[in-house]
Design a protein around this nucleic acid. Structure first.
Lengths: 343, 343
DNA sequence: TTTTAATGATAAAACGTTTTATCTATATTT
DNA sequence: AAATATAGATAAAACGTTTTATCATTAAAA
């Protein structure tokens, strides 16, 4: 069975030509007569010739594969992202090799090292604390890199992500417009710049609306806490801050934990507590009375990332105007931020 | 900048040995003296030598990459799956190249063709109607293949998936135990064997419980219908079947559509309508009163799939006892199937 | 001592491409 | 007619490995 793959050498033999001629025809390079070209093309097609990627890769140093290193493909955000990236890359004949770090620094380092063995032509990475050096190293070695969902302040590694600051600012603004004044925040202490930006936006909006900001109104959930403990932590937080009438969850994950906590406490949304969460998903649209969310422009982020990466791959240099791309989010208003009942 | 990658030739030169010697040492093959071995190992380590995967691949015909072809990485089921597969594969030094077909047959065919160019050592595929030939072709060419989430009846291509028949059977049984007698089903007309198996389980359970089965009680949602239209279809279905007191959704996707429909109709779960859906996810655990679901053993499926694939890759033949693996699911009972209020 | 075996190291071929440099034959210019 | 250009084709090197076969040298066996 196992019919041996056909190579250009075989085609050369079948057509009484040389491998050079075959290669030229197949790649449209040298100058080969119409007749011979046709003959070669026919034979190649008939035998289902496909170039050996390894050989091509070895010879040219180009793998036509790009590496996607994310925290975890599981989540709705990265899943959707991966899909778009794959689709777009495919248009340029690129395939995606996928690696998840699960927020494990060593794993991230390993991934980068492994992929850099002439295996991939470029990287799309969700950065994490501690990976600065490794990524900068890639850039220094002229490897095309684009960061998504985060960035390293002070470096000039291209990155594309949602405008976290403005998004959080708008969330608070939405609360205020609906009459909420005691606005809390639940975030995580991952040390991620994007979460920090969200916090800053939250604080700035409070200030601009002349609302008092208090560290008591902010809960930082330890990143290694499991879901149940997280729910308990949020419950304790809500119970303690009696005066709080609205709460902003800075991630999808925290938002669903929050819903569970609020449900456990038998509180009503938004009468007892108004809610906004980052990252729209199905739960939020379905869960009564509908949870207001900040919807990340997944498609735009992924599209921009791949475009910027491809530009680097093709031109071998990076366009300085494309280093810092912040994409606006969309606030999806639902029942969880209805105007506060006048007391 | 761009420091040239170091090759075994370089190491040979640095250590005054031959490339054969270096290769032997690095792979622990031939017989090389302790001193020389140490010298070579030291130099290799100091210079951060990493073998060129393309060269290795070309020479050995092994890429250490496996192809994962799924319908869409987006969903929670495949996302979780991809994660486990990636983790397990990594233990054997394999990486995952990921492709989604979006239920597009041509795309599936293209993917298989592309990957077969000596690029991957094995495949994990979620089969779709029309891909039989292409996949059988891989098998005939002795490529390691494992199907997940579906299979082709009558062929002997290894596959591992949840026991769809029994799962659906158990769902109906659960309804019956709680006193529901008019049990409907919402499914999709994708022509997928797994959905067919679920239907069969549903019907068999009805029969065994002496309940009447009627095609009126089954809704087949066209697979290309968008979400909104789907919701409308389900609403119409529910309204028409007044006597229906329980409904079984055969997929995650249909389940959330169903919840939306039930919400729109302002019906109460489970008083007006009891609900079970295939594929557990966050929505179902959170959505009041909690939706009973059939939880797929994602981890086990993924683990088995990768194990079977690796066995094929390593032994170059497939273990006949591992061809048809059906893994039991877990019924997660929640509020949506509470015992029916006695009339 | 001579033959045989074991040890340690290597040369060279091969994997399937791409690409540079070269070659022949024909066409064009002087 | 001689010199030069062009068209069409190819040989051979290179990419970085792995592996087979071979070659010395030294140790063990006869």
């Amino acid at each position: 069975m196992m019919k041996k793959k056909i190579s250009i050498k075989d085609i050369a033999k079948l057509t009484d030509t040389s491998i050079t001629t075959v290669s030229f025809v197949l790649n449209g390079k040298g100058r080969i007569s119409k007749e011979i070209s046709k003959k070669i093309l026919d034979v190649a097609k008939k035998n289902g010739y496909e170039p050996n990627r390894m050989a091509v890769g070895l010879r040219t140093g180009v793998s036509k594969v790009i590496g996607l290193i994310v925290e975890s493909i599981g989540g709705p955000f990265f899943g959707e992202m991966a899909k778009v990236i794959e689709e777009e890359a495919e248009k340029d004949g690129y395939r995606i090799i996928y690696c998840s770090t699960n927020n494990n620094l060593q794993k991230g380092k390993d991934m980068i090292r492994m992929l850099s063995q002439q295996l991939v032509d470029g990287y799309i990475i969700t950065p994490m604390k501690g990976l600065e050096k490794d990524i900068q190293n890639l850039v220094d070695n002229e490897k095309p890199v684009v960061l998504i969902d985060g960035y390293f302040p002070g470096t000039s590694i291209p990155h594309v992500l949602v405008d976290n600051y403005t998004s959080a600012y708008n969330a608070v603004d939405c609360f205020v417009r609906s009459g909420y004044k005691n606005i809390g925040m639940v975030t995580a202490d991952l040390g991620l710049i994007q979460l920090n930006d969200r916090s800053l936006g939250y604080k700035a909006a409070l200030k601009d609306n002349n609302l008092k900001e208090s560290s008591k109104m902010v809960l930082k959930v330890p990143f290694d806490m499991d879901k149940n403990d997280g729910v308990e932590a949020v419950k304790a937080f809500i119970e303690k801050q009696k005066q709080m009438d609205a709460v902003f969850f800075t991630t999808n994950y925290l938002g669903t934990m929050g819903l569970q906590a609020i449900k456990d406490l038998k509180l009503s949304i938004p009468d007892d507590l108004a809610v906004i969460s980052f990252d729209d998903n199905e739960v939020f649209s379905l869960y009564p009375p509908g949870i207001t969310t900040i919807q990340q422009p997944t498609y735009d982020i992924a599209k921009s990332a791949i475009d910027i990466l491809m530009a680097q791959i093709n031109t071998h240099k990076l366009d300085a105007s494309k280093i810092d791309l912040k994409i606006p989010s969309k606030l999806i208003e639902r029942g969880s931020t209805l105007s506060k009942a006048t007391a």
